[in-house]
């Protein structure tokens, strides 16, 4: 199978890779680019563990082809913390114990960031609907919702 050459940006960094035309962006991120923060839960769009942004829009990377990233901007969980430390969303997930096994967490962090950029002060219902495509088998969701609310407060009024 002829590989395709793709140039894209991942977390503001220009990257090039070769991929099969039917390879998913999720597989490219993990297997070709070594960015294993993005997780695979289902591979069929149901769990959200593979959430990334594509030109700023939240998508499941398991339902995007690697070749579709050509000329686009991909955002993954690796791009959220910076040199100074964790992003407030990550910090609040830790403080609220909003994770146990952690497999859903990268997807939830990416999805939460996309939500708070669109709606800095979401109510609980908005949070639950926005995150309905991010499944978590461990926490029971309440702590996640609290972490998101806390992160929203923190971002609005940094301590």
């Amino acid at each position: 199978m002829a590989k395709v050459h793709v140039t894209t940006t991942v977390n503001s960094e220009t990257v090039e890779f070769l991929c099969d035309p039917n390879q998913t962006l999720l597989d490219v991120l993990r297997d070709e680019l070594g960015k294993t923060g993005t997780k695979e839960g289902c591979g069929t769009g149901d769990c959200g563990a593979c959430s990334v942004t594509l030109d700023g829009r939240l998508v499941c990377s398991c339902l995007v082809l690697g070749v579709e990233a050509q000329g686009k901007a991909v955002g993954t969980v690796e791009g959220i913390a910076n040199a100074d430390g964790l992003h407030p969303i990550q910090q609040k997930f830790l403080e609220n114990a909003a994770l146990q096994c952690g497999i859903c967490t990268p997807g939830l962090i990416v999805a939460t960031k996309a939500l708070l950029e669109k709606d800095p002060n979401p109510d609980e219902k908005t949070i639950r609907y926005w995150l309905a495509g991010n499944l978590c088998r461990c926490t029971g969701y309440d702590k996640i919702v609290r972490a998101v609310q806390d992160a929203a407060k923190d971002l609005a009024h940094p301590a």
């Binding site: 999805a111 996309a114 495509g133």
Partner: peptide, 9 residues
């Protein structure tokens, strides 16, 4: 149609 992620596409 689907979740936030699905609606993005």
């Amino acid at each position: 149609i689907g979740s936030t992620q699905i609606q993005g596409r």
